[in-house]
């Protein structure tokens, strides 16, 4: 740790890397624009649909399962994030830390099995008829 000036300065190189990465991707985009051909036709610029004229708009309604997965992910990812600081200090908490986490894990698992029973995790059952 003595080789670094101070704590926050350690994050500055990440900004440098971010700048370089942005520069690289911008450079590639620009280069491909400059070097590429530019012979446009209406049909060429149409969205790909196996060679047929595109029908309708693609930004349409989609299966609600994708949406549900996103919601459950946010809940469980936050719960995972809570596990990580606990894992770091775990050794100093000893058995107390273990039982505290057992309570927490029981709550997480209760929610997990609830959504499992509700069928949110099943993808192959047909949708209920409305």
């Amino acid at each position: 740790m003595n080789s670094q000036p101070n704590y926050m300065a350690n994050y500055l190189p990440i900004l440098i890397q971010l700048g370089l990465a942005l520069g690289l991707s911008g450079g590639i985009l620009a280069l491909s624009w400059l070097l590429g051909l530019h012979r446009r036709t209406r049909r060429k610029l149409a969205a790909y649909e196996c060679g047929v004229e595109p029908v309708g708009d693609a930004q349409n309604r989609f299966a609600v399962r994708f949406y549900l997965v996103a919601i459950i992910f946010i809940l469980f990812d936050i719960e995972t994030v809570f596990l990580i600081p606990w894992a770091v200090v775990f050794r100093s908490l000893k058995l107390f830390g273990f039982f505290e986490m057992l309570v927490y894990m029981a709550i997480v698992l209760a929610g997990f099995f609830y959504i499992w029973r509700k069928g949110v995790l099943d993808w192959n059952t047909p949708e209920r008829a409305e």
């Binding site: 990465a21 942005l22 690289l24 991707s25 911008g26 590639i28 985009l29 280069l31 491909s32 624009w33 070097l35 590429g36 051909l37 530019h38 012979r39 446009r40 209406r42 060429k44 610029l45 149409a46 969205a47 595109p54 708009d57 693609a58």
Partner: peptide, 24 residues
């Protein structure tokens, strides 16, 4: 690099451009 740089006419121009940049 020398291939034609196509942007579909129905695409959302800005997001279409920055999506590969975000990925990289």
């Amino acid at each position: 690099l020398t291939k034609e740089d196509i942007m579909p006419s129905t695409a959302h121009k800005l997001l279409y451009l920055i999506a590969p940049a975000i990925a990289v």
